[in-house]
């Protein structure tokens, strides 16, 4: 936390800004990358969204008031960037963002950057059938084990609602896996 404060003050000072920003990228790039990847599915799209996220962080760092953790704030930007990327693609292709995601998941078998087995592929297909909010909650809890308290801060929702979403998501996914 102290390190975060120090990094923030360095980011807001013109002399230390660039080096602090480089450090910020190094600290969070991996976590944010995997978070984005689970939403947009393909590696190339994730790369684009990750870069956009950091550029947005850099340009808006002065607006960060410190109400939440820097890490939560960045996660929130990454989530918004990934979802607006899906929406933009959907608009361009004149389909829904769910269809964009389904399309990406169906392409996974041929993706060179996917080495999962049949059951992992099936799990991705199952996740893609969920509403966007449940997808986010499931991915963040199941794979990243993010605490409900932190998740509530990132997604600006109550812990209770998140817990309910997660349990519904797990049920639906189990049903999909055993049913298909």
């Amino acid at each position: 936390m102290d390190h975060e404060k120090e990094l923030l003050s360095q980011l807001k000072s013109p002399q230390t800004r660039d080096s602090a920003f480089r450090e910020l990228i190094s600290l969070y790039k991996e976590r944010l990358y995997w978070h984005i990847r689970k939403i947009v599915i393909s590696h190339n799209d994730s790369d684009d969204v990750l870069q956009n996220t950091f550029i947005k962080v850099f340009k808006n760092i002065d607006k960060f008031k410190g109400d939440s953790k820097l890490y939560s704030w960045m996660y929130r930007i990454a989530t918004n960037e990934a979802i607006s990327f899906l929406n933009k693609n959907a608009k361009r292709l004149q389909i829904t963002s769910e269809e964009v995601q389904n399309h990406a998941v169906n392409n996974l078998r041929a993706d060179v950057h996917f080495d999962g087995n049949e059951i992992q592929l099936k799990l991705q297909q199952a996740i893609a059938t969920l509403p966007q909010k449940q997808q986010l909650v499931f991915n963040m809890k199941y794979f990243d084990d993010i605490k409900y308290r932190e998740m509530a801060d990132i997604l600006k929702t109550s812990e209770g609602a998140l817990k309910a979403s997660y349990h519904i998501a797990v049920k639906k996914i189990e049903q999909y896996l055993t049913g298909n």
């Binding site: 790039k29 990750l50 870069q51 060179v112 950057h113 996917f114 999962g116 059951i119 992992q120 794979f143």
Partner: peptide, 24 residues
């Protein structure tokens, strides 16, 4: 190959080697 959720602990996504070093 069991269809239980507990048996899956990773996404199966992969990324190019050394990709993360190029992000900065």
């Amino acid at each position: 190959s069991s269809s239980s959720l507990e048996s899956i602990n990773s996404t199966g996504f992969d990324l190019p080697e050394a990709y993360l070093n190029t992000v900065e």
